[in-house]
Design a protein around this nucleic acid. Sequence first.
RNA 1: CGGGGCGUAGCGCAGUUGGUAGCGCGCGACAUUUGGGAUGUUGAGGUCGCAUGUUCGAAUCAUGUCGCCCCGACCA
Length: 577
Amino acid sequence: MRASSYFAPTLREVPAEAEIPSHKLLLRAGYLRKLGAGVYTYLPLAWKVIRKMEQVLREEQELINCAEMRMPTLVPKELMEETGRWGLDVVYKLQDRRKADFALGFTHEEVITDLARQELRSWRDLPVMLYQVQTKFRDEPRPRGGVIRTREFLMFDAYSFDRDVDAMDTSYKAQRTAYERFFQRIGLRYLIVDADGGAIGDLDNQEFMSLADAGEDTVLSCDSCSYAANAEKCPVNPPATSETATSVSLEEVHTPNARTIDEVAAFLGTASSMFIKTLIYSADGKPVVVLVRGDHTVNDVKLARLVGAAELELAPEAMVVAVTGAPVGFAGPVGLTGVPIYADHAVTVLQSAVTGANKADFHITGVAAGRDFTWTVAADIRVAEDGDSCPMCTSGTMRTTRGIEIGHIFKLGDKYSKAMQLDVTGDDGKLQAIQMGCYGIGMSRSLAAIVEASHDKDGIIWPISVAPFEVSIVVAARQDDAQYAAADAIYKSMKAAGLDVYFDDRDERAGVKFKDADLMGCPIRVVVGKGLATGVVEVKQRGTDVVETVALADIIQRVTVLKQQLLTALNPATHHV
RNA sequence: CGGGGCGUAGCGCAGUUGGUAGCGCGCGACAUUUGGGAUGUUGAGGUCGCAUGUUCGAAUCAUGUCGCCCCGACCA
């Protein structure tokens, strides 16, 4: 491709809307433009990267016998109602001229399951794995981070259909391997973490996380074993030792205007870890009391699963007053009756704690768990934190980092097949529900994740497997006939040699072209300039400062070898994450 | 949806006590330059997000509204 007739509008200044590196660079380097909040146009460069990612994905899916297909974007309301998802807030809805309702596909379990139940008859038809790469629509409450979370985005989604749980496990593992190879080949380092399945279910599911400061998720990983989990999933070990019982007695203390843990802790001069944080939740409209240590945070996901509530949120003020008899900020477990009390393990060993007195402007000190209050259920309901002991190997320590969720694989079991009567005749002649799995990769998000992980102050540094161009040629002085002729000849022969090459033949000053080349981020740069007088050109790898001088006659050969080396470095057989 | 911030030229921004708009970059032309975002001369480009109101007069004040960004909620 010749720059003189290409469309890659670069910006010298960073648009005010961008904050994270990938967003800034993708805008500046001419990959993306915003149309509205969470709605982006992928300019030629970005689209080319996406297409290259897709190609790698296709090769890997082919290896596990997963076939590409394409489902509609318009999904009839009736189908969505079968699984109860028509009413979800994230669904974009529209009507046709006959007033028929449709959803814009935000995922395709319903469509694929409908197809499968019409076509799959016998266990002999299984297994089947299918995938597509398609635009998804979700009415996100808050799009953010450029292309990290958008309302319209490109996603790979695959679905597996198996006769039983063992076969489903096999499909799940095959996809996991395909994912590992895919991410390695596109040069994106990742961590596989245990995750919460959200509304889709609570069977085995794992997320592929690209570690980045701009990530939306908190990831905990063990510094000793290989265990890692999303913070919303990560189990917390119960306290190893219980505190020795003390004979401190209860004392009511006046704490005027001190409502938060920090305020009361400062007022009393007591550490927040000695507090019992008492929160009133509304679980499907009914009050529930939750106790965690003052320095801990309630894990809403764990709590919702424990309580078994569909809707769980902090109770409105009126409910708090009704339950505790005090305004918000003075709740405590002592003397609370008639409401289920869920206590985190860490709370059940406290022996001289501070908590609210269920009375305005008063707290109680010297509170002993078991002696002064009891609980309905003691469980793990707090968010895991940096420094916690590992729930798997118990000898390691968990450390936190931020991560971008680039892939998620799920075992669905029979959740959708039962809801939608997807069954086949088994080898015993009886109908049985199919075991499903579903697998997703955020393509546009992965694009951003690569940039987050691979850039410097000058621009993007693409892994060669997905770079928009493998090589970029810069003619230092376009108006020098000899230079231009040489560069043009190199360009043509590189194309003939099968290299994906970008030729910056614009009549710009050399500096401008160098800056743009760095921004764009192609892995190999060839400069045709002064050296031409002695028959040489320069070769430089993006991200390094080593400049190689290569004889004109050897340039194709040299660049081809370099390309091969860079590709080999990304090969799953040799590339260890 | 709650909290905070911002809407003025393609991009980044300024605009005083209310008097009908400016700077830098970018863009066009010309000249001089030419290996890391050149310099000079000159030129084009704006219903100041939108609406209503106050006023002789509104980018500026008031009310409303729309949009965008960040934090939180939310995120199959």
